[in-house]
Nucleic acid binder design. Structure first.
Lengths: 179, 179
DNA sequence: CAGTATCCTGTCCGATACTG
DNA sequence: CAGTATCGGACAGGATACTG
């Protein structure tokens, strides 16, 4: 029972972590977003051990983030391409990239995002699609979504949902013995 | 030598993962962004074992993401508050949140971001701060930053830097000749 | 209440060797 | 070339007991 399945949680962040929580998985997806598709491409660019790569790749396929596709028959060959779900992970990568660049680049930013045409560096921010206003905590908060309100009766750790209580934060009874 | 230190890599994503790569760490930061500061708040809202919490908390402090602050002397009491670096992690959380909501919410979105005043749900996107244009791969690409160009002579796996080769995308060769 | 100390299990990950 | 098989170490994570 090593890892409590985060998927049990209602929090979408936890659910996501259940799919790509491992270090390599994220880096593999990053490479895939760069266009890599084949085993040895990942192996070489990441310097990952082949068995680990096999495992992570299989995990990502099972999680629905990558799709394994046979692209050659005579010698059976497969390629790994991102699903829509995998491609949708890009904003997370970009956000992580920006964060890393800002705080963990002692010698300066070694890698930056640039506009493909102008070549001008980009500065990634997360905004609301409609208002285009930055999503900062002062202006936005998390709330129960449609699916949650439909079953508010259920007793759960609200914070684990990603739901911030507006008031202080109630003491959450949580029996340590589920069953 | 269990985990190859990702910090060795020049890739900012890898460096970031070196700091908050563990599952719990991310969830702890998420809770901290919600305003939690004390040990038992984290413990209860996450349902995490106390020793794990101690370890992750210590790790986050060492990574410079949380700061441990004594807020009471008579009974020595500490609180854990986000550093600037930790607060800057919020966009990543938001992006992950959106991703999880989009793809792993079978029964509908249980948690959504809303505008604090209007209550209207927000739809997070990553854009360039200046142009406000969405950062999609068709329009943007990664490139060597200032720190990288200064030592281009060094031989490294380019992709591990997060540097995409300018041409179409190196892996995109659709050559039907596997080997 | 706010943690620390111990012990244990699972598994992430690396290294290496092997196969069609 | 594109992986699979096997081995072993380190540590995340869980359960429990204990302390000021």
């Amino acid at each position: 029972m090593q890892r409590k399945s985060f998927s049990k949680m209602q929090c979408p962040v936890a659910r996501g972590l259940d799919r790509i929580g491992e270090w390599w998985s994220i880096l593999i997806v990053r490479e895939a977003l760069h266009g890599l598709t084949r085993f040895d491409q990942f192996e070489q660019s990441l310097g990952i051990a082949p068995n680990m790569l096999t495992r992570r790749l299989a995990g990502l396929v099972k999680a629905g983030i990558l799709e394994k596709r046979r692209y050659s028959d005579r010698p059976p060959r497969y390629e790994y391409v991102l699903t829509e779900c995998g491609r949708d992970f890009q904003p997370v990568i970009i956000a992580m990239h920006a964060w890393g660049n800002r705080h963990f680049a002692p010698e300066g930013q070694s890698v930056v995002l640039v506009n493909a045409r102008t070549g001008k560096p980009a500065d990634p921010v997360v905004v609301d699609r409609n208002s285009r206003r930055p999503l900062v905590d002062s202006e936005f908060r998390v709330a129960a979504g449609p699916a949650a309100v439909a079953r508010t009766r259920r007793k759960m750790a609200a914070s684990a949902w990603g739901i911030a209580q507006n008031p202080p934060l109630p003491a959450k009874r949580k029996s340590r013995t589920p069953a």
